[in-house]
Every structure is written in C-alpha cells, then in structure tokens.
Design a protein around this nucleic acid. Structure first.
Lengths: 209, 209
DNA sequence: AACCCTATTGATCGAATGATCTATAAATCG
DNA sequence: CGATTTATAGATCATTCGATCAATAGGGTT
C-alpha cells in the first residue's frame, strides 16, 4: 500500500519565483486538489511542495496548517458548484420530464465524473468528514425530492415511487464514475447513452413516456 | 482530517498473554480488519497494537512488515467469499429469473453491505490496489455476464440489454452500501424492498415479467 | 518444583513528518 | 540606482513512524 509517492509526485520542473501572493495561493490550491485526489488526504506536505516546485515551508506561509490546505481544497472543488438553476429546470413542466432528467444528468455527470471531484469526495467520505453528509442532504432536498414530486405528478395512479427509488436511479448513474475513478476499470468514454437508458428504464417502469 | 485516532482506537483492557501462535495471529488479523476499515490503510501499527492490547513489536513477530498485515486483511475479507454456486443458481432456468435475481442480490448485499467489506474495498480502490480490478473483472465474467445472457434469453426480441445496463442495475444496488458505510447517511435498515423494486423495474423495462 | 522453550515486552534506531524561524534575494518605489 | 519590502528558501525542532533486538516471563513438561 505504501506506494513510492515521491516518484509519481513530480510535475513541473521548478518554475519561477516570487509570484504575487494571490496567484501563488491559487496555484497551491489547484496543485493541492490534484495532489490530494491522487494520493489521498494523508498526502505529505513535502510531496505537495515538490510537485508544486516550491519549498515545503512556503506552504505554511499561505496556510496555518495542513488542515487549512484541505479546507481550501474542499472549497475549491465543491463549494457552489451545484448549478443554481437545476432545481428550477428540473421542475419546469413546460419541458417533457424525460428531457429534464436527461439534461440534468448529462450536466451533473460532467461535474461529478471529474477525477478530482470523485476521488476527493470518496476520500473525505471515508475520513468521516461532514462534507459528504451535508452534500448528500443538500442533493436530496434540493434536487432528488423535487424530482420525486415530478415523477409522481407524471406517473399514473397505482404506482407510487419513493425516495429510495430515486436514490437507486441516482446511484446507478454515479456508480459509473466510481468504477472509472475509484476502482479504475474501463467505462464508456461517453456515459450519456448509459445514462439515457437508465433514465428511460426508470421512467418507463413508472409508466411515464 | 487528522482525527485523534488514539481516542477511538482503544477497546479491550489489555487481556491475557501468551496465546498459541495460531490464535494470536488470527486475533491480530481480525482486529486489523476492523481497525483498517475504521481508520484506513494508513492506520498506524501502534494504534492497531493498542486496540489489540498487545505491544507494537509483537505485530512484527507475526508479520514481516505492515504490508503483510494488510495482505492478510485482504485475504480474510475477500478471498473466496463469492459463493461458488451463485453462477449456477443464477443460470438455473427452472427457477423464474426474477426469483434468481432477488435471491442473488439479497445474499450478495448481505455480504458487501458489511462495514468492513465496503470500507476496505473503497480504501484499497483509492490506493490503486489491483484487488479491485481483479474483483470487478471476476464479478463481470462470472456473475454479471451470465446474467446478461439470462436476461437476453428471457427478453422479447426488439430490446437488447448491454453489459452497461447490467452494471447500472448492479451499481444502483451497491450504492445503498456506499451511502451507508462510506458517506454515513441514513439508509433503509432492510434494503431488500429497495432491491426488489430495482430488480422489478429493471426486468419490467426489458419486458420480463 | 525446577527447567526449558518461546511468546511477549520494552527500549531503541533511523527516517519521515508537520511546523517554526531566520537568512536571502526578487521586485517595487523614491 | 539604491533602499525598502516581502516572497521564498534553507536549516532545524519535536514527534511520530515502521522496524529491530536483547531481555523477560508465561506455561507446559518432566
């Protein structure tokens, strides 16, 4: 398990010095995002510094400690990246429900199937971070529950979908990204066909055409 | 992120000494399974020893190094725990396909929804271990591909399910365990209803009653 | 009860880690 | 161009890590 981190850590060949603090900080955060996505939140500050082509001590000139770097990583990857108008567009009944679902999951999968997004989310989940509970709660109330209402409104009487059914649809799609970036097995280059089939099966089984 | 591991690590109050080597080794492995499931594969040998109520140096009397402990953990959690006759029972056409699927996923979910199974699998996936690729490849060839054939045989002509559809069914179910043990959000105590609905939606959309 | 085998301990080593502090040098201003 | 500011580097500290090894003591045998 102890991979030789130092070998896969190097990147740019130690670029120029004395950047404006704003720019240096941004560079550190962006480097930290891919670094911690690669090696996990237990990644060492010396390895991060080496990858950035700076000294380790410089990191602590911009962040009080390592936890603060990781906070900045969280903020950069997850904060306000859920599009504001997904809830509105998902409930816009002037558009066919199928189109709304396809649009949403096409855009949403482009976000979460990102290497950094998926891996840091999993690392922080395993670490027990509050981030994941907050995120999934937000997902449930702002996106998935309204979606349940839409499906119920569109479905004929006898069938009655539940939140757990929505989570099943959601999980089946998210699992593509997990296979790709966590387990690192082959997945379709373009997941949109698989997504469309999943959505169609889901809607079809609830009698929504 | 740096939780105070030592606080959540303690367990038994330092039990007796001088066990037979066989038993001591077994005790170490079983303790290591839950320990590494809790804190991740970067967990420290001193914390593991403390949880076991033994000295850290004793660990290295039974294992040459930490990597060997983790190998034993992998073996204990994953080796030969895929039931031998799942492939046979899944393809036994004297039983209705729906029943076969429900039986399989009921039993399989009891295996993989285990706390240790799920978390160690995710930790090792993130660490890039070969384990996960091997496991998913095995899953695909021994279980899911035969399953695809069964569904194709039972489905009427025009529809033609693909492997990616099977992975979608699979992922939607596995995702329940991910929510529970990785993200640590509430899930149904008994997932069998959600599983049954997922299976029924899946089969129904392919015209299999 | 004395003996012996070995499971277990406790002390310790060298390397690695997060963090601190002072010295240096790159850019900006007068 | 010289002075001042401050971003950056380099040396270093106190811990913690995996791993080693000699000393100790548990428990079965006679």
């Amino acid at each position: 398990m102890d991979q030789p981190v130092s070998d896969i850590v190097a990147a740019e060949p130690a670029e120029r010095r004395r950047l404006p603090p704003e720019e240096r900080r941004r560079q550190i955060v962006e480097g930290a995002v891919t670094f911690f996505a690669d090696v996990g939140l237990d990644g060492k500050t010396r390895d991060l510094a080496k990858r950035l082509g700076i000294t380790q001590s410089l990191l602590f000139n911009y962040f009080a400690n390592k936890a603060e770097i990781i906070e900045a990583v969280y903020a950069h990857v997850y904060l306000d990246r859920l599009s504001e108008d997904w809830p509105r567009r998902l409930t816009d009944r002037s558009v066919p429900l199928r189109d709304r679902l396809l649009t949403f999951y096409t855009e949403y999968s482009q976000l979460i199937f990102e290497y950094e997004w998926m891996r840091i989310f999993m690392f922080s989940g395993l670490a027990g971070a509050e981030l994941n509970r907050r995120y999934l709660h937000h997902m449930g109330t702002v996106i998935l529950h309204p979606l349940l209402d839409e499906i119920r409104a569109a479905a004929p009487a006898p069938v009655d979908p539940q939140m757990e059914d929505i989570w099943n649809l959601h999980g089946g799609i998210v699992y593509i990204g997990i296979r790709r970036h966590i387990y690192q097995v082959p997945t379709p280059d373009d997941p949109s066909e698989a997504i469309a089939h999943a959505v169609d099966r889901f809607l079809g089984s609830f009698g929504v055409v």
